[in-house]
Amino acid sequence: MKRSKKAALILMAPAATLLLAGCGEQEQEVHVFHDVDECAAFYHPPAACQAEFEQAQAMHTQMAPRYQNQLECEADFGAGQCETAPERHQSGSFFMPMMMGYMAGQMLNRGNLAGGQAQPTQQAAGGSRPAVPTQPLYKSRDDRSTFRTASNQAVASQPGVARVRPSAVQPQRAQLVRRGGFGQQAAARQEAMRRDARRQRSYGS
């Protein structure tokens, strides 16, 4: 026999469509502030504000997005808004944006007098809902009012209470790695073909 004895597939037969995690996920209340004083001004205990801030600050060095140089960083975060990161690459230091605020995922015990709403109960301990970790926040060059997480998720446009989907604000380690350095020829040739109203279907042969 000149043909394969069997030809099975185990991955290619498509599985049932996966629903995106996060659909129907319950939002959780968090507190967003520029600094410890602002947190305390919202009637939270200063000690709790300070503790959360320090926690966010410690995560800042791990989570802040990394750039090859200051110029690239400032292009996203604005002039004078970047600092050197702890890591070095072959030709210098990485840069990262400065921390512009923080998000407290834990309850700040004093209570939310300003909002007057009932306190959400902390359900993370029961494990039924993922908690929102306390983390640093940033502001982009083009949009100085919005607080964003290290992975560029907008969370609030003013200090105080905000609601977030926990899955959208899970901290990730900063990526030092550059991407997009392969595939440029494909893009260029695709463009050349488009001018001839043709399309390059494959980069195989």
């Binding site: 690459h89 072959q90 030092l176 790695v177 997009g180």
Partner: peptide
């Protein structure tokens, strides 16, 4: 995806 490949320190 080819475009997602990252590079760092060689």
């Amino acid at each position: 995806a080819l475009e997602d490949i990252g590079s760092l320190d060689g």
